[in-house]
Design a protein around this nucleic acid. Structure first.
Lengths: 162, 162
DNA sequence: AGCGTTATGTAACTATATAACAACGATGAG
DNA sequence: CTCATCGTTGTTATATAGTTACATAACGCT
């Protein structure tokens, strides 16, 4: 079974989308006793500024624009926290971060990243996970963390290029 | 079906292992009319110095030690060539490169990377590929390239830690 | 208030990767 | 053989990504 969470192509109210993510983050952190401080919240919001992975230094610049000039380390610390809490995923092949639409359930990230528009669709396919786990088991390998990233062309971009 | 290529834990004659890789590279490049120049050959050899992913700058240092001092760009260019020819894979989660034991057949890399010893085992599991392809198809996503990297603990290290 | 823990600030630094342009060198056409 | 061409390498500078070490501040508990 595949669970997909992607930006609806049309009629996507991103303001609502971001608000939802921030709300979920608040609730989650509260329930865990984790502190979603002002900086962490702002970084999370900036990560969610779109559905495309955003680099640490891009976020740094965003913050400067918003009048909050901080050091790289500050952003990295906030990102580390957010990743730890499962609120954002890191896209290894882009050195960038993206908001997780479903932070309540721990899961490995699986992403389709479009080379044209840059949007990343998060998948969560049990077959993929199962196949990877089976391979690891065959090798006697204990899994900490898996990275699945697919680079290519999304439907929208393929159509608009045609 | 899973095809595995890993360093034999015991009795692994690495000299032979590297020679084999270089031989295959020569043959492959010759058959394609691609030029395996001295630099490219040396970089390939250095990538193959072990079965763990090696960073571009580590290779740069290796070359300096061997008396061939070059600029980063030179190494990156050689690596780009080698990746293009399928002779080495890039491990995104480590910003590092590893030799491919089976360059003759195009394939996405799938890796188990041990957090202790750093060794990377290349898998090539059809179920994993199939599951990913199916997901992409479901989304109308055209695949260019897939990255599958599993971080964890290999059998040997788990046993020796026990 | 006092104390330990967690979060943030500051600065310098290391690591990874690319840009722009010049020069070299193998190969093939004339 | 010579020249033109194209791919490869050299050189320098720069962009991007991430970390180390240490100081300070805020919170949360007793």
């Amino acid at each position: 079974m595949t669970t997909i969470t992607a930006p609806a192509e049309t009629g996507h109210d991103h303001g609502r989308c971001v608000d939802g993510a921030l709300g979920r983050a608040e609730a989650l952190c509260a329930s865990r006793g984790a502190r979603l401080t002002a900086i962490r919240r702002q970084v999370l919001e900036l990560v969610w500024s779109g559905h495309r992975p955003r680099g640490a230094y891009a976020i740094l610049d965003d913050m400067a624009v918003e009048g909050k000039r901080v050091a790289p380390l500050t952003v990295y610390r906030a990102l580390d926290f957010l990743v730890e809490q499962g609120l954002v995923h890191r896209i290894e092949s882009l050195n960038a971060y993206i908001g997780c639409p479903d932070p309540d359930h721990a899961h490995p990230g699986q992403f389709l990243v479009c080379r044209e528009c840059g949007n990343a669709i998060e998948l969560n396919d049990a077959r993929v996970s199962a196949a990877i786990d089976a391979c690891a088991r065959d090798q006697g390998f204990t899994v900490d963390r898996t990275t699945v990233e697919v680079r290519g062309l999304c439907t929208t971009c393929r159509n608009s290029l045609a």
